[in-house]
Design a protein around this nucleic acid. Structure first.
Length: 206
DNA sequence: TAGTTGATCGTCT
DNA sequence: GACGATCAACTAA
């Protein structure tokens, strides 16, 4: 098993952490089985200096985890039905976070399919593509069974963590505008792997 | 293939 | 009471 990222990896400036997470492996342990995905798309949210961040208007019960220690997942519920997962960065109080937007499935794929409840596979062949398994922030949470319970647990623990993955060259990284937000749109704080098939749809249009 | 909309509810104003 | 760091199904062409 590859080496888990140390706490200090998450302590660095949010933009650096975001870029650096590309190519790393997100590992989710459920009982005895493991789900593994390579991180191919992320967005940086910079706490109190970023109007698009949930933490911009200060601490609330919902975003408390972001104001806590780095190296913990901030999982939030949105649109009445979806979860999205972030990784908290920088020192406590800074409320930096990196949103996981897309993964490339590496291991445990059949379980991811079950978790995503893909009963439509027969009826709609277009969607049988494995691309739709984890090419969006809410899809990742479904496939990896990340929800309220995982909010704020330690990424240095056993249930969810990040390991060293593939080394990524600077030239392989694409930098663009963030998706699905109004304020702070102009900031190019979204990072993805050029040409990777799992990069989310919203992103590849830009 | 592009554009639109329904689902569905916690959080903050 | 409004809306959201979304997704999937639907419509029109």
């Amino acid at each position: 098993m590859a080496q888990k990222l140390a706490r200090s990896s998450y302590s660095r400036p949010t933009l650096i952490v975001a870029r650096d997470l590309l190519g790393k492996y997100l590992v989710r342990r459920i009982g005895r089985s493991f789900l593994i995905g390579k991180i191919v798309e992320v967005e940086a949210y910079r706490g109190s200096i970023d109007p698009a961040s949930h933490a911009y208007r200060g601490r609330t019960p919902r975003n408390a985890v972001m104001f806590g220690r780095e190296g913990h997942p901030y999982v939030y519920f949105t649109y009445g039905m979806h979860f999205c997962a972030n990784i908290v960065t920088e020192d406590p109080g800074k409320a930096g976070a990196v949103l996981l937007r897309a993964l490339e499935p590496i291991s445990g794929i059949s379980r991811m399919i079950v978790n995503r409840k893909k009963k439509e596979r027969k009826r709609n062949p277009k969607r049988t593509d494995d691309r739709s398994l984890t090419n969006g922030p809410a899809k990742i949470c479904q496939a990896f069974r990340i929800g309220r319970k995982e909010n704020g647990i330690d990424l240095l623990g056993r249930k969810i963590y990040v390991t060293q993955g593939e080394s990524i060259k600077h030239s392989e990284i694409e930098r663009s505008q963030r998706i699905g937000i109004r304020e702070g749109k102009e900031k190019k704080w979204r990072f993805s792997l050029k040409g990777n098939r799992w990069v989310s749809e919203g992103g590849r249009k830009i």
